[in-house]
Amino acid sequence: MTTTLALEAGYWHSLGRGVGAIVLYALVGLVLMLIGFAALDATTPGSLRGMVADSLPNSIIVSASGMVSMALIVVLAIFSSGGKLSEGLISTIIFGLVGIIAQVISVRVLEFVLSIDIGAVLKDPEFSMESLVVAAAHFALGLVVAVSIL
Rank of each mutant, 00 (worst) to 15 (best):
S115P: 03
T3L: 12
F139Y: 14
S131R: 03
L30P: 07
I93S: 12
M129R: 12
E126V: 05
M51S: 04
V113T: 09
G83T: 12
S86V: 11
E111K: 02
L110N: 08
G66N: 09
G46H: 13
G88F: 00
G46D: 10
A136S: 09
I100T: 13
S106M: 13
V104A: 11
V52C: 06
L27H: 05
L150G: 15
I94K: 15
V133I: 15
A140T: 13
V104E: 08
G10Q: 01
Q103D: 09
T92N: 07
A26V: 12
L97G: 04
S81V: 03
S131P: 03
T44K: 07
G50H: 01
G16I: 02
I90T: 15
N58Y: 04
G99M: 05
L141P: 05
A38L: 11
I22G: 11
L15R: 12
L30Y: 15
Y25G: 01
G20S: 02
G119Q: 07
G142H: 13
A140R: 06
F79I: 10
I61T: 06
G99K: 03
I116Y: 00
V145K: 09
A26M: 13
S80H: 07
S106H: 11
E126D: 13
F95D: 10
I116M: 01
T43K: 13
L141N: 14
A21L: 03
S86C: 02
E130I: 12
A137T: 09
V134D: 02
G50V: 00
R108I: 13
K123W: 04
G88I: 00
G82I: 00
I116H: 02
E126H: 10
N58A: 03
D117Y: 05
I90C: 09
G83S: 10
F37Y: 11
G99P: 04
G82K: 01
I100Y: 10
P57D: 05
S91N: 12
L143G: 15
G29L: 04
